[in-house]
């Protein structure tokens, strides 16, 4: 049985010009210990469907699905107070802007310990010890001192490490990473990706990697879903996707990579024009 099982997910937003469907009829499943990458450009609905799983969409969004199950539990019809004990504990998420996702008013130690208090009910001493252990796990060396640091005193890469520490604090079964390295330099990106994949293997988590970066997909994923404008274009294992992509959109996307350039002009996605209708 898959860990996360989604059938026919549709998310629509109520806008002033009518209903806008951001995600339409997506099927998706993740097994335990699997790394799934969801790739797409902006507007493909890749973040929206994960926010729907987390229940983090604004009230203007309507989520419908035939099935939205995590670990055998129906997330769609679950009352919020029950959901709160799953979100953050069994499913954790990290976001694109690490500095903006941390609360600037509290030390990072406080923010990590808050997770431990809420979900695991640890006492003060246990929390402190676990927070230090977590910071060590994500590669922050002087953990004892760093606990007292505020987010603005740390670099972007360090903040992302703290976010990861918070996310894995309760040993989640599923970690969702929404563009975790987009705001970071390549050298830092490499470190964060290695860390995420390492932790995934070590803890046996499932990992969903949301990204627009083909390179990140190639470096991390087992299986890949390619999305475009709320629809699934292709789903295959990572090697097949790069060796023999079946959908024309994937082929176009891969050929737009400057790495794959052959002539002195890049092929562009003509049939799949990314310009919105004005």
């Amino acid at each position: 049985m898959p860990l996360l099982d989604i059938r026919n997910l549709t998310v629509s937003f109520d806008t002033s010009i009518g209903l806008f469907k951001a995600v339409e009829g997506i099927d998706l499943s993740v097994d335990a210990r699997e790394v799934l990458a969801i790739v797409g450009e902006s507007g493909s609905g890749k973040s929206v469907e994960m926010l729907a799983v987390m229940g983090l969409l604004p009230p203007s969004a309507t989520v419908t699905a035939d099935k939205l199950e995590f670990d055998g539990k129906d997330l769609l019809h679950m009352p919020p107070h029950e959901k709160r004990h799953i979100i953050g504990r069994d499913i954790a998420m990290i976001f694109q802007e690490p500095v903006a996702s941390l609360n600037p008013c509290f030390t990072i130690g406080f923010q990590i310990e808050e997770v431990l208090r809420f979900h695991l009910g640890m006492d003060r001493k246990q929390r402190r010890a676990r927070a230090i252990e977590l910071l060590h796990q994500v590669g922050i060396s002087d953990a004892e001192q760093r606990l007292h640091a505020f987010p603005h005193q740390m670099s972007g890469g360090q903040c992302q490490r703290v976010m990861i520490a918070m996310a894995i604090a309760c040993k989640p079964k599923l970690l969702i990473a929404d563009e975790p390295t987009t705001a970071l330099d390549v050298t830092i990106q490499k470190q964060i990706l290695d860390l995420l994949v390492g932790l995934q293997a070590q803890h046996g988590m499932a990992l969903i990697m949301i990204t627009h970066n083909i390179g990140v997909v190639a470096e991390t994923a087992d299986r890949v879903i390619v999305q475009y404008r709320g629809h699934k274009m292709e789903e295959s294992d990572v090697l097949t996707l790069f060796e023999a992509p079946t959908s024309p959109y994937t082929r176009a996307l891969l050929s737009a990579l400057p790495d794959n350039a052959t002539g002195d002009r890049l092929p562009t996605i003509g049939d799949f024009s990314a310009e919105p209708a004005i």
């Binding site: 390549v186 050298t187 990106q189 490499k190 990706l193 293997a201 970066n213 083909i214 390179g215 990140v216 997909v217 190639a218 470096e219 990572v238 090697l239 790069f242 060796e243 891969l254 990579l257 790495d259």
Partner: peptide, 22 residues
Amino acid sequence: KTLFAATPRADVASIKARLARR
């Protein structure tokens, strides 16, 4: 050299190598 090593590679050979390592 560090910069080059950190740049993600999207060619089939390096994906195969990564999957084998994994």
